[in-house]
């Protein structure tokens, strides 16, 4: 169980970054870290002691495989994560060009 808790601590570090940091790039890094920890947690649930990778080769038709379902779902999730990170970075780039800073406190002051 300690391994699940370590994974959750990684999630909490990302949450800390999102909540307490003032720099936009660091907020985006925090969101990405949270996403990675969730991916890792779901793969850990699907792991089986002594299982092999879920690929059938000759001579291993009836071997013990790990669960392929979480792997298939996370496969799509990783690529979506790249696209959403790029979308957030695009917003950050435009904000920097308008206000000249990544600091969200200063961006709030310059409203209008």
């Amino acid at each position: 169980m300690i391994i699940y808790i370590l994974c959750f601590i990684l999630f909490l570090v990302g949450l800390y970054g999102v909540v307490s940091k003032r720099n936009l790039i660091k907020i985006i890094i925090g969101i990405a870290i949270m996403e990675y920890s969730i991916n890792l947690f779901l793969i850990m649930i699907g792991y089986i002691e002594g299982g092999t990778a879920p690929i059938i080769t000759k001579g291993f038709e009836h071997a013990k495989f790990v669960d392929p379902l979480p792997q298939a779902m996370i496969l799509t999730s990783i690529v979506i994560g790249l696209a959403t990170t790029a979308l957030l970075l695009a917003v950050a780039i435009r904000l920097y060009q308008k206000y000249g800073t990544f600091d969200i406190n200063k961006i709030k002051d310059l409203k209008g």
Partner: peptide, 26 residues
């Protein structure tokens, strides 16, 4: 280590792409 080679291939390429995009942004 968790026996997911598909995910490892995707993750290593996506990580490189993410780093390049982030450095291009900053």
């Amino acid at each position: 280590l968790l026996q997911a080679p598909d995910l490892a291939i995707v993750q290593v390429v996506v990580e490189v792409a993410t780093l390049i995009i982030m450095i291009a942004a900053i």
